[in-house]
């Protein structure tokens, strides 16, 4: 069992690169996902991942399937759209989900249009679903950089970020950090989506961010448990997804996301916090 799990990585360089890329992503994206989930912004991040598409497409049109160009384009487009949506929310009465939906629909339509202007069906597939087995040195360095920045920034803004989630009004009365913290967090979301795009494509980039976070909810109750649990879930999903893809000759990106999805369903069934199995076993209630 452990041999068949590890063999492909021992044998092939491209599998090792894919694994390293996914593990790095597993450390940086799930903590961001935990906060997205707790702020009820899960769907928003899904929408946001579409927003990086026009940037990636512009990079693709300018420089072909070049990683730096597409990454830079994706980062720029994602940040611009996220900041615009946040600014619109903070200055108008429209709620964030509504303004985000508006911006992202425009972005997604624009992106698909741009790619179809130049580029084949295969290019579109590659951009939408990624190619984790073709990660080169540049991509790995980029993923490492994204993970480093993410963890450092998360540590720096952790306290105000929690306060902004629980009681934004309180944070506003004691500090002006709320706005900058919110924007910094959105910046982290975009960065990790662009990182995820290298491996999983724009459509599945959210997979390693959200699925482990939601999975962790069934195993831990507070942040000190949720964040490590989500990272662990992402690591297990990466490892097993890649191994499955190798042995069964499946596309790697979807296999990883499906493995994360499998962990989620498993947790939904047997997780100690709100899992279905624990609802069936009715334990006698306590005295007080």
């Amino acid at each position: 069992m452990s041999e068949s799990l590890l063999a492909p990585f021992l044998e092939f360089g491209f599998m090792r690169r894919a694994l390293v890329g996914c593990l790095v992503l597993s450390v940086s994206a799930p903590p961001v996902g935990v906060f997205l989930m707790l702020r009820r912004m899960s769907l928003m991040s899904e929408a946001m991942s579409h927003a990086i598409l026009p940037g990636v497409a512009t990079g693709f049109i300018v420089a072909g399937l070049s990683l730096p160009a597409m990454t830079f384009g994706g980062l720029a487009a994602g940040l611009v759209v996220a900041l615009l949506a946040a600014a619109v929310t903070r200055t108008t009465m429209v709620r964030e989900d509504a303004s985000l939906a508006a911006f992202y629909l425009i972005a997604l339509a624009g992106g698909v249009l741009l790619i179809s202007l130049r580029g084949s069906q295969l290019d579109l597939l590659h951009i939408l679903f990624g190619n984790v087995l073709a990660l080169d040195d540049g991509a790995l360095v980029l993923l490492g950089g994204i993970a480093t920045v993410t963890l450092v920034v998360m540590a720096a803004i952790f306290r105000p970020l929690v306060m902004e989630c629980v009681d934004p009004l309180f944070l506003r009365t004691v500090s002006r950090a709320g706005g900058p913290v919110h924007f910094a967090f959105l910046g982290l979301v975009v960065m990790n989506l662009v990182g995820g795009f290298q491996a999983l494509g724009t459509l599945l980039a959210v997979g390693l961010m959200l699925l482990p976070a939601v999975t962790a909810r069934f195993w831990a109750s507070d942040l000190t448990g949720l964040i490590p649990a989500s990272i662990l879930a992402a690591v297990v999903a990466s490892l097993s997804g890649l191994a499955l893809a190798y042995h069964l000759d499946l596309p790697a990106g979807p296999a990883i996301v499906l493995a994360a999805g499998g962990l989620y369903v498993l947790s939904l069934l047997i997780g100690p916090r709100g899992g279905l199995a624990h609802r069936l076993i009715r334990r006698r209630h306590l005295e007080a």
Binding site: L38, C165, V166, D167, L171, V174, S175, D222, L223
Partner: peptide, 30 residues
């Protein structure tokens, strides 16, 4: 300032100690 309680997200998994510790912000900052 104590706002009306319904402006606070009580589903966020935060302990009582951490909630009370928010009051330290002016002295501890981030």
């Amino acid at each position: 300032y104590l706002p009306q309680a319904d402006e606070i997200d009580r589903t966020f998994p935060l302990s009582v100690l951490d909630l009370v510790a928010m009051g330290l912000w002016s002295r501890t900052g981030p």
